[in-house]
Design a protein around this nucleic acid. Structure first.
Lengths: 214, 214
DNA sequence: TTTTAAATCAGTCGCTTGACTTAAGTATGG
DNA sequence: CCATACTTAAGTCAAGCGACTGATTTAAAA
């Protein structure tokens, strides 16, 4: 009964070590530039096949890392969704999109690698899909997007899609850039993740409300 | 005299083949996931050391690719700069920032790999610097940024830096995404690079003119 | 206690890597 | 017409790769 838990605990510790090591190495060097051997070693495993044993393919490992974080972000976004309620202010909904992600990064022990990891994963066509799958599986995200669409002024469909992509890129790469700067101890325009989120929200709202050239 | 040119021509053809092959492979798989051997083979070279012979390190090869394109973009931007003149409309200057890049992509034979190549390069801290060096070496870009700053409403310095970064990310990754979609024959929100540029300019202008939360 | 199975370790396999060396081919300049 | 210098080809080398195998440890179940 409680016995099984002990063995599980040991395995979970190893799994966790592999996840953490992989996230860091993938973020710094790129997913396909890092071998499973290097991940195993960085996780303190004598066995060079530890990754294969616990996760299978490299894509499975990437999915596991993504899911771990997605769960945390989901938790934060649900809370935020409660605060937003049924607001009709575009800014509130953009905040519900942005803030949970940056709050999550702020909560993580420093230095963080998650944003850079995401940026690396999103550049690969195959892995890209894994990432979007894990994100779109989130009910809170879906509800946020719906609420956002309700109070957004009417836009041509192609502009709507286009600006959605712009907002995604903005969140992803501004986070990755800030994270990199923090890791390398170089200057950042904002002194906290919270302030960075505010600036990001300002920009994204401006982007969505910009007039459309026809 | 004319003799030397023939040998040079042969070498230039090989160099060109290597540049083209490297750009494609780097864009698709990432710079460090592709070996010099693979580049040499893809360029039709029997010699597995052809890359080393013609370019030296992988960073030198990346720089050569970046420079090649930067020259074309420079040419287009200079022309655009003439049209903009001394306009005081923010939009004109954003257009001078954006249009040359997308015009260059439109001029290249399809499919293109340059935008994805840039996106890959920018994710690596070491290569990142090579790319920015090649870009900032452009006088036309510098003049454009200056002209832009002259007609932009006053912003806190940190917001200015922040939004500059946002605009950069937007241009880079929207181009890469569109390029990927074209290569994979999936849907794109806009039917031409020119229209994509218009949408991008709309968004970036909105971003810069957005009110600042204090 | 003994048995069982999960988890880890240790090592092998064929293959590819970057760095390097050597040889062959070729237009030029003497 | 030949020697030179530049370019390409071909192959070697240790190191590292993923995939795989069998042995060992360890806690659970019998």
């Amino acid at each position: 009964m409680a016995g099984r838990a002990v063995r599980q605990e040991r395995a979970d510790a190893t799994r966790g070590a592999i996840l953490a090591a992989a996230e860091r190495l993938f973020a710094e060097r790129g997913v396909y530039a890092v071998s499973n051997r290097q991940v195993s070693e960085a996780a303190g495993q004598g066995n060079n096949a530890a990754v294969g044993y616990h996760f299978g393919t490299k894509a499975d490992l990437v999915r596991a890392i993504a899911r771990q974080h997605a769960e945390q972000v989901e938790r934060l976004r649900l809370r935020m969704l409660g605060e937003v309620g049924d607001s009709t202010d575009v800014r509130d909904w953009v905040a519900a999109l942005v803030r949970p992600v940056l709050e999550h990064l702020a909560e993580l022990p420093s230095p963080t690698w998650y944003a850079r990891f995401c940026a690396q994963v999103m550049t690969d066509p195959a892995l890209h899909e894994i990432m979007t799958d894990e994100s779109l599986a989130s009910p809170a995200l879906r509800r946020t997007v719906e609420g956002f669409n309700r109070c957004l002024p009417e836009l041509p469909i192609e502009v709507h899609i286009e600006r959605g992509a712009m907002a995604r890129h903005l969140i992803l790469h501004m986070c990755a850039e800030r994270e990199r700067a923090l890791a390398e101890n170089t200057a950042t325009p904002r002194s906290s993740w919270h302030d960075a989120a505010t600036g990001l929200i300002d920009g994204i709202v401006g982007l969505w409300l910009a007039p459309v050239t026809r």
